[in-house]
């Protein structure tokens, strides 16, 4: 293979102001983090509520949560993104349509679509983990909580969820990493996050290998740091006297 690697490409001017190509990657990384972090927080909240719903005795509530999970888990992420970005806005009320399609900066409307899409998609997966976390607890825990007179919400808040979340930190971590990786679908609706900037750099400079190598490296370092952070969290909340956290 005859390829001339040129790592200096990142320090070359893009021709726009004093910008160098590295700035594109920095800005792309910023968008990637902004998408993934916000979507993750929303997913965690919605997913936890759904996960609790799935364990409730009420058939209607658990049924709704189950239907949600089936719907969002069985449709490809990319299809969901296109629905949120191209289709859903057309069904909004007139004023909201004008606002979304014309008044908003295109980057902002793409950002909103991708955050909504990733959050709802990931919520289905968080839901399943929260559900299994709760179901993994010994039956005696809910009996003990009920026996002292706790209401259902108190039982979840003080007894079940603090234990369930500790159990599911490892699978939640991998979902947390997934949302960063999945955020790259945003490049397909024109949001200039890390992957989009990488492709653009590759096209502008013809240094495709360098661009994708750098992108790979950034994703890798980012996810390694998240993983390290999460294992720190796991250690921090570990229950004294127990080897692997909650039993």
């Amino acid at each position: 293979m005859n390829y001339n690697w040129d790592w200096n490409v990142f320090f070359k001017s893009t021709g726009i102001g004093s910008e160098i190509y590295l700035d594109w990657f920095v800005s792309g990384l910023g968008w990637t983090i902004a998408v993934a972090l916000v979507a993750w927080i929303v997913a965690l909240i919605i997913g936890s509520v759904l996960g609790v719903m799935r364990t409730l005795p009420n058939k209607l509530l658990s049924g709704i949560a189950t239907a949600y999970v089936e719907l969002f888990r069985n449709v490809p992420l990319l299809v969901q993104l296109f629905i949120w970005y191209f289709m859903v806005p057309d069904y909004l009320p007139e004023s909201a349509q004008v606002w979304f399609k014309q008044e908003l900066n295109p980057a902002t409307s793409a950002y909103i679509s991708v955050v909504v899409c990733l959050a709802l998609f990931t919520a289905a997966r968080v839901c399943e983990q929260v559900r299994t976390g709760i179901q993994a607890l010994p039956k005696g825990q809910s009996a003990a909580a009920l026996a002292v007179g706790f209401t259902l919400p108190q039982m979840y808040r003080h007894v079940l969820l603090p234990q369930a979340f500790r159990i599911i930190i490892p699978p939640l971590t991998s979902e947390f990493l997934n949302i960063f990786k999945n955020s790259s679908v945003a490049s397909l609706i024109g949001l200039m996050e890390l992957l989009a900037q990488t492709k653009q750099t590759a096209e502008f400079t013809a240094n495709m290998f360098e661009a994708f190598t750098l992108a790979t490296l950034i994703y890798f370092v980012l996810n390694m740091s998240l993983m390290t952070f999460m294992s720190w969290v796991e250690k921090k909340v570990r229950i004294p006297g127990m080897m692997g956290g909650a039993k």
Binding site: P138, G140, Q141, A143, A144, A147, V148, H158, V159, P162, Q163, R166, I239, M242, A246, K247
Partner: peptide
């Protein structure tokens, strides 16, 4: 008050 066979203390 209820005391269980398996104690059921809150481990956390």
């Amino acid at each position: 008050g209820f005391v269980f066979q398996h104690f059921n203390l809150y481990p956390h």
